[in-house]
Design a protein around this nucleic acid. Structure first.
Lengths: 189, 189
DNA sequence: GTCTATAATTCGATAGAC
DNA sequence: GTCTATCGAATTATAGAC
């Protein structure tokens, strides 16, 4: 099965295993501490294969850090609930895909990852805010930036630094209290 | 002068130079990428001296990451201005002492540094909030945690990731808009 | 107290056999 | 397409001379 005409590519399965292991290691240790040898071992293949497929460590990270926020259409929501919806969505994405963790842990010490973060927020967050508020481009960018400080700060404290009071916060309470902040950045201040 | 009775310690100057160089390197590159060789070179001394004084890289970081937030007495301020005062103070401390940058860049991938962050917020931030609000201990910890998400997120985006819209924000505007959020976490929500 | 020399690892990357 | 073998470089850390 699947060895017929429609080429399922000999070892896309290997490539996928490498990417999954890479995300895991970059997410757990950051760029520097993650090793090609360790990633290859976790994927059950030879380190040389990683080099063959992705050229070098940089190329491997670039492939592993591909990420889609998948923000829903916020304009379909009641205006007063948008802040909470944004927080809910980010918590979901954060807990459901370790790519974001890999990006954050790496961006702090790695130029390319920080740049990727910038692009993600500029292309996947700002447009949604523009559609909501219909404000000038500069004002939209500022609002997106302020929201980024709160959302990334939440992720940093809850998932990376694991500050006890932030980890202990029930999800619903985060949505309510941090959602109010995001709501303010979206429309008020 | 100073070679008299009161021992000024032969080479406290060397130790200080090492610590300054260590903060600089940890702040710029994080824990992994910072090297004892590089730090020693910047301090103008031999790498072996670093080992002699601080035992190992871990010990060096522990010494370099000593930090005092120096939060002023917030209860002396008009209640409505506390949020802005907190943001102003953090911006000052962040821009005036690279120790915080070293801590953040390192805490993301280094256990001990993350723990240090926890202790700093628990011992240097939470007490101030307790004095202000007079609420139960758990509620105070939660408020401190929420404030940490906003303050650290701001620092992350402005000083580490350098997200353009956040970098472009005038200081006064940050104080006003983010200050309003901190004010909310302090008293309202 | 300071430095030289080096041990012991570990890593990314390459060359080439199968 | 996958793996073996290995190179060259860089790191922490130690031992010991001066």
């Amino acid at each position: 099965m699947a060895t017929t005409i429609d080429t399922p590519r000999k070892s896309d399965v290997t490539r996928a295993a490498i990417l999954a292991a890479a995300r895991e290691h970059f997410a757990a240790s950051g760029y520097q501490a993650a090793t090609i040898r360790g990633i290859a071992a976790a994927a059950g293949i030879d380190p040389a294969l990683v080099m063959r497929y992705y050229g070098n460590k940089e190329g491997l990270f670039a492939a592993a850090a591909e990420f889609d926020l998948r923000l829903p259409d916020l304009s379909a929501l009641p205006r007063a609930r948008v802040g909470e919806a944004v927080v809910t969505h980010f918590l979901d994405r954060w807990e459901g895909d370790e790519t974001l963790m890999a990006l954050l842990r790496t961006a702090v010490t790695h130029e390319a990852a920080a740049a990727r973060m910038q692009v993600i927020f500029a292309t996947q967050v700002a447009p949604h805010i523009a559609r909501l508020s219909g404000q000038p481009r500069a004002a939209v960018a500022t609002r997106a930036g302020l929201i980024a400080t709160q959302i990334l700060g939440l992720a940093l404290c809850r998932y990376v630094l694991k500050l006890p009071p932030v980890v202990a916060l029930p999800r619903a309470e985060i949505v309510r209290r941090v959602g109010a902040t995001v709501q303010g950045y979206l429309f008020d201040r």
